[in-house]
Structures are given as structure tokens and as C-alpha cells.
Design a binder for these strands. Structure first.
Lengths: 187, 187
DNA sequence: TCACTATAACTAATGGTATTAGTTTATGCA
DNA sequence: TGCATAAACTAATACCATTAGTTATAGTGA
């Protein structure tokens, strides 16, 4: 019985690799155990079960997304900050499609730790929109709008929803450009 | 052995009810069979397996979404048509959250029948955008943008992504309003 | 009306999954 | 060096999808 030296972190790393390379459907305790050269029950020494693993994937997903977006917008303001955030967001969804899905498909709607991390992302977007002089209420609408654009575009791209070969980054830039331009006039 | 009179349609209806009421995770042959008071193997007399059922859910999902959107925009043009489409889209995702997920999570990327139905939805949006005088290329970008907004907003709402109590329809209207206003200036 | 055929729905069996209980043994610490 | 903790295991249970083979119903033709 050679001890492999498992721990929660190694299990989550293996799980993250599987979802990013093979899709969220492929995440099973059996697959993780295989990847770690261990039998499935061994995982229970370090983890409550599959649902905890999914929860941890959501958590590191949100954290990694924030860590990707934060440096991108740092020091920038207005349009420049928004486009930087958008590019970072899109890049993350391309680099980590599986993990990204877990950032959206929340386990229990009320997981405070995940919610806290998610709020950091929202704060980042809110901050980038600061110099648009929006009312408090419109700022909330605008953040929701930007999140909808970012998630919708990324999700549709992931699922192969865009048939045309036309450059997709160009599409995202145009939506955001139009949205921001229109935002300026609504106030 | 009383014959229940199963057929493909009844099976798909039962499956649709399950995904809309209990979520896409809940769709299993066992659950469908229970709902129809039948043993799981009986389903194989009418269906290839679970993957075909999922494929059929995608197909009727796309068809139903089109049938919801088409009458909404019929006879309208410009902003009015776009907002009508958006409201119909949002309503569909609320009435049929499970079916809606299947319209996005396509089975094999290349299912011609589903793709054909999907193209009818895209044509509807394209038509509604007609009088914005967009170049052919920008029209494609704009359709992608609108789809991103609609899907992103609906998906985030479904997943409980919007915490605030602030009226959500208002948010969607503002994003679209801003997007359309900006679109007018880009050309 | 009756037999016959096609097939709907079944039971039994296989192999995959998560999870729990109970066992063995490696490893770190006294 | 010995011992206690716990890591990894085997065995077992319960669920799932799917296939093979069985039973018997319902519609057809005589």
C-alpha cells in the first residue's frame, strides 16, 4: 500500500485538469482517482464527496477568474479598463472552459465564500465603470449588462454557437463599444 | 403486462417536464420511466438511449423558442421588434429553464436539423435589425451581440447570478437600449 | 371469430458510477 | 523502537444505462 500523498489540493488540481480538458460531464470520482493512480474510496479520506469537489472547483474558478481580471484592468479607467477586463475574461474562458462553467453553475446558491469572491469581480467591473457618471441604480443595471455580454458571448463561443468564421474578438469588441457608447447617452 | 401506449412523443414530453421542473441534472432514463409508470428498458423500444432523448430535447427546445419569438416580433420593426424578441426570449427561459439549457448545450455540434431551426431564430433577429442600415459584416457582429446579451442575461438570472432585488427586466431593457443606441452611431 | 405475427413491456444480467464500512499497513512522533 | 493516526485499501450496497432474451398483448388476415 504505497502512500501517494494525496491531499485536497492535488485532488482539486486533477479535477480541474479533467474539466478543462474533457468537459464538465467528465468529472467523476472514478476519473479523478484514475488520474491520481488511486482507488475511488481513497479520495474520501480528503474530500466529502463529488459535490464538495464541484464546490471547490467553483471556488478556485472564481478566484482564478478574478486573478486574471484584476491585473488586466489595474491602473486603467473607462473604456480602456472595460476592454481590458473583457479580453481577460474571454481569455480565461478559453484557457479554462471547464472551470469557467463551474464559476456560473453555483452549487448551493448561498455559499458565502464563493459569493465573496464573486463580489470582488463585480467590484472590479463597477470600478471600471466609475467615470461614466451613472446613477447608483443605473450602475447596477450597467454591471449586469456587461456581465451578461461577457458571459453570453463566452458561453455561446464555448458551445460552438457562432458558426461564421468572422473574427469573434471583433464581435465582442463591437458589442461592448456599442453598449458603452449607448450608456454614455442614457445617464 | 398492460400496455401503456408509449411513443417517442410521450417520452420526450415526460423528459421535458422533468428538466423544466427539476433541472437538467435530473434527466435520467430511470426518472422518465418512473414518471411514465414503466421500467427503464421499455423506453428502448421507442428511443435509442439517453443521448437521443437529450438530442430531442434540444430540438424541441429550439423549436419552441422560435415559436415563442416569431409571433412576438411579427409585424414589428426596429427597436420595437428587438424588445419584443427580448421579452419573449426571457419569458421562454423562465417558463422552460431546462429546455432552454438544452437549446444551448448542443449534442453533436453538427446536427443539421437542430442547426436549421437555430438558423430560423438567427434570421428573426437579423430581420429585426434590418432597418439599422448595418453593413453585412456589422450585421453579423450585431446579431452575435444581441444573442450574447439575451443568453448571458437569461443564463445569469437562471443561475441566480443577480443578487440585488432591483428589477431585472429593467436591467435587460437598459442593456439593450444602450446597445441599440450605440449601434446607431457605429454603423 | 380465431389464429398468427409483430412488438410493447417485461425480467435478468452486465458494467459503470458514488458512497459506506471495515481492514491493513505505512508513517510520524513519543 | 514501539505505537497511534490515518492513508489507502477491499468488499459491499445502491443506483444508473444498456443489452439479451422472455412473455403476452393487440392488431391483422382468414
Amino acid at each position: 500500500m504505497p502512500r501517494v500523498g494525496l491531499d485536497l489540493s492535488k485532488i482539486i488540481q486533477a479535477a480541474a485538469k479533467i474539466v478543462d480538458e474533457q468537459g464538465v460531464e467528465a468529472i467523476t470520482l472514478a476519473a479523478i482517482a484514475r488520474d491520481l493512480s488511486v482507488k475511488p474510496p481513497s479520495l474520501f479520506n480528503h474530500v466529502q464527496g463529488l459535490s464538495q469537489i464541484k464546490r471547490e472547483l467553483s471556488l478556485i474558478g472564481v478566484k482564478m477568474l478574478y486573478d486574471t481580471m484584476q491585473p488586466a484592468s489595474d491602473g486603467k479607467l473607462g473604456d480602456e479598463a472595460i476592454f481590458a477586463l473583457a479580453n481577460a475574461y474571454l481569455q480565461f474562458t478559453r484557457d479554462h472552459p471547464g472551470l469557467y462553467e463551474f464559476t456560473i453553475a453555483l452549487p448551493h446558491p448561498k455559499d458565502e465564500e464563493i459569493e465573496k469572491e464573486g463580489n470582488k469581480i463585480i467590484a472590479l467591473i463597477t470600478e471600471a465603470l466609475r467615470n461614466y457618471q451613472l446613477s447608483e441604480e443605473n450602475a447596477i443595471h450597467a454591471v449586469r449588462g456587461l456581465r451578461s455580454i461577457l458571459h453570453g458571448f463566452s458561453s455561446l463561443e464555448q458551445k460552438g454557437g457562432f458558426g461564421m468564421p468572422l473574427r469573434k474578438e471583433e464581435s465582442l469588441n463591437l458589442v461592448i463599444k456599442a453598449f458603452l457608447t449607448g450608456l454614455d447617452q442614457i445617464k
